[in-house]
Design a protein around this nucleic acid. Structure first.
Length: 434
RNA sequence: GGAGAGGUGUCCGAGCGGUCGAAGGAGCUUGUCUUGAAAACAAGUGUGUCGGCAACGAUACCGUGGGUUCGAAUCCCACCCUCUCCGCCA
């Protein structure tokens, strides 16, 4: 959530920037609630101060009947105030959480997805001297993907991934872990992009794939309707995570991290689950949009000063990874409308899919500033003793389903086979073709 | 699933109706001493909210929520979580 003090100080700006995100926020109503809440809180505190005084007078000895009488009155008044405060507090919190994060100034203002900007295009789509197939047309006849049987077992949007495709997925995982553990590569990317942050490798993490409602809601990522599956029995209070990011960003919930530990960089590997409600018929073929997919996700906790640069590092890493696979791609600077409620800045990478003849989203990098950390209460104790909110960043390393599809389509041969990208061959025992 | 123990500050740990934001210790910071370090000694050291330019003041927080009471970390109820043993199991 946003800092209420910031909203008090900049009501017009908050309303305007929210509108740029396509979110209508009534700051006037929120501030009215804020005022009423503060008045009640102040009144209640005055009564409590009186009560504390009274009970300090009574300590040790038996309280007089007059003291007891006065205490009872205070108690009644407090109870009344409390009854008023509870619903207002509830409404206030709801209204405050409805306010989106403010986009940074370099985010282009736009009111639809179409206003995203292509920041750059890297690599040339290959000229095939045959009509390129999509990943499903390549895989299905060779029994590398079985969606038919999966449908029998689970319904739509699930698949059995098989054979060399699985080996390719594990090769990608190894390649990413290797790359993100390489300080020299990180150092190089920091230098090339002129970033003011340290070269510290990413620690691999396999997080839990489920989480409880309370931390999930605090992460500003719980989107039950469209995205998230409930897990287990209703009484279990567990959700299936829709990205490793959700169980990574909540990891330090309610903690104060020493500044020396920052930045904390993680590369998480997790199966992700998405309901994909409201997408019926969209991307129905193949494995582009599934209810279940594996994903490698980067997550960074940092100080406020380094948050924006950490974001740029994550984008640089994404580009590096895609370049190593020699996939043509575009970097998309998402406009205010498209970056999402908790984001201050959002960059996508769209890879070229010859089977569809278009660039499509394979990566996203979210800079969330302190918006997540405020509600999650993740703070850092600075060297001077001051306690501040951390900044969080998360970004896709590879969404494995989509990147498999990209590799298959870009590396296909006329006879329907797939050349293994060079950087992955060491992780496949030197195998050059699938 | 059965039986038991427990959740207190950065950590360990005491407190079991008012003197408790909380003993004691460790850690950390600063100072004295020292060529330097260690040791010793002294002082300081939680977070949030509200008010204030600030110094500061008020208030809340001892797993969470409710209750009893003039007054709750302390008593009662419910829930959550953790640990140990047994059972089951990857």
């Amino acid at each position: 959530m946003l800092d209420i003090q910031f909203i008090r100080d900049n009501p017009k700006l908050v309303e305007e920037k929210s509108k740029q995100k396509g979110i209508d926020v009534n700051v006037g109503d929120l501030l009215l609630l804020d005022e009423r809440r503060r008045k009640l809180v102040t009144d209640a505190e005055k009564l409590r101060a009186e009560r504390n005084e009274l009970s300090a007078d009574a300590k040790g000895k038996k309280p007089t009947p007059a003291q007891i009488e006065k205490g009872k009155k205070l108690k009644d008044k407090l109870a009344k105030l409390d009854d008023e405060l509870v619903p207002i507090e509830e409404e206030y919190t709801k209204a405050l959480k409805a306010v989106p994060n403010m986009p940074t100034d370099d985010v282009p203002v736009g009111y639809s997805e179409d206003e995203n900007k292509v920041a750059k295009t890297v690599g040339e789509p290959k000229d095939f001297d045959f009509k390129p197939k999509n990943e499903y047309e390549l895989a299905e006849p060779r029994d590398l993907i079985d969606k038919e049987r999966a449908a029998k077992i689970t319904g739509s949007r699930f698949a059995y991934l098989k054979g060399d495709l699985v080996r390719l997925q594990f090769a990608i995982i190894q390649f990413v872990l290797q790359t993100l553990n390489d300080v020299e590569i990180i150092e190089k990317l920091i230098r090339e992009n002129d970033l003011n942050i340290v070269a510290k490798p990413f620690t691999p993490v396999i997080p839990p794939a489920m989480l409880r409602t309370e931390p999930y809601a605090a992460s500003a990522r719980l989107n039950a309707e469209e995205v998230t599956y409930r897990a287990g029995q209703p009484e279990d209070d567990l959700w299936l995570n829709a990205s490793a990011e959700h169980t990574l960003c909540t990891m330090y919930w309610n903690e104060i991290l020493p500044e020396e530990n920052l930045p904390i960089r993680y590369i998480g590997y997790s199966t992700s689950f998405r309901r994909e409600a409201g997408t019926y018929g969209k991307d129905a073929e193949g494995i582009f949009r599934m209810h279940q997919f594996d994903k490698l996700e980067m997550e960074v906790f940092s100080t406020a000063e380094t948050g924006p640069d950490e974001h740029l590092l994550l984008v640089a890493i994404q580009e590096y990874l895609v370049q190593q696979l020699e996939l043509p791609y575009q970097v998309i600077q998402k406009c205010t409308f498209d970056i999402g409620k908790p984001n201050a800045r959002g960059i996508d990478i769209n890879c070229w899919f010859p089977g569809q003849g278009q660039y499509r989203e394979t990566h996203t990098a979210d800079f969330i500033s302190d918006y997540q950390a405020r509600d999650l209460k993740i703070r850092t104790r600075r060297k001077d003793g001051k306690v501040e909110l951390v900044h969080t960043n998360d970004a896709t390393a590879f969404a494995l389903g989509r990147i498999l599809k990209a590799i298959m389509e870009n590396y296909q041969t006329q006879d329907g086979h797939i050349i293994v990208p060079e950087v992955l061959r060491p992780y496949m025992g030197g195998q050059t073709e699938i």
